[in-house]
Amino acid sequence: MSQKILAKNKLDAFLQGLCRDQDLFAPVMKDGKVGWAPVATADQALWDFSNTEMSPKDFFFPQTECMMRFKNVQGDPQGMIMQAEPALNRPRVLLNIRPCDAKAFQVLDLIFVQDEMTNDLYWRDKREKTTLIGLACNDPCPTCFCTTVGSNPHGTTGLDVLLVDLGDKFLAQALTAKGEALVGDLPAAAGGDEAKAAELKKAAEGKISGGVAMDKVNSREVMELYDAPLWDRVMESCLNCGTCTFCCPTCHCFDIQDETQGQDGRRVRNWDYCMSWLFTMHGTGHNPRGTKKDRVRQRFMHKFKYIPVKRGGEIGCVGCGRCVRLCPVNIDVRQVVNDMNA
């Protein structure tokens, strides 16, 4: 695919092209926090930031999502029969998404879409209608550890276009046919531009200081890790809150509930989390993950052992560091995984 140049003074024209028949979103500064919002011009979007506070997963997997509706009348010919919500009506572009977050979507693709039965159309529809334009990280922050979990500050996985900030311009790398269509008309990059991007990539990789080692986690059996003594310490301070899972780009557990209001009814899914006691509770009162330790362990085992075992070695973590930054009691995933690997 082609390597193009996007001059910084041509950004507005580029963005205008993007939002002509699509909804365009980008990271913006809101109340001192970096979050996603619709943008129309280049100066509305952020171009120099570490990452958004929360992951962009809710573009594809909203925290609350209506799946179906029904007429809440028994006896009516149409009553009580579930009708799926319509699909997304406009395609979307996510601009300046970080490579770690894009990689996370590809991990989630492996879970949401597996075969004819495990084929989450809600996820899939939004994925197929969304174009991802990534912005490479030249300055990873101290909590980033993407390179140690198979991602990269300049990673291209899951992206349609990768932008690399070269100072006065961006190197725009088309990665898919969708991406090619967006940047195909831009001027071609020179050899020097690509060399500079490669240098920045190397420099960015070098700035990732801490990380996780996975070799022993990979080679050990599930039960050896499960029974390891470390969990007794990890769980001690844990609050069993949902912060780590809700800010995580790969956490994807959910609950489905019905709601009614007079003759209207809907089936909604909401994010749920394995830290919650209620999550696995049986109707009989039996709870297979009845203790805090069980629940804390589940999160780490799921990401670093269960997903890799089941999904061809793919790790359920992209090293974005959000949980490290936001955990109210500083449970640091890097430390936990290194303890698993010890």
Binding site: M54, Q63, L239, N240, C241, G242, T243, T245, F246, W271, Y273, S276, W277, L278, P328
Partner: peptide, 24 residues
């Protein structure tokens, strides 16, 4: 608010075996 309940879980007043938000 993302309903993570960190406020509740960090609070030393909240020690009910089943919190009202978890009641099904």
């Amino acid at each position: 608010c993302i309903r993570c309940y960190a406020c509740r879980d960090a609070c030393p007043l909240c020690y009910c075996h089943v919190c009202f938000v978890d009641e099904a």
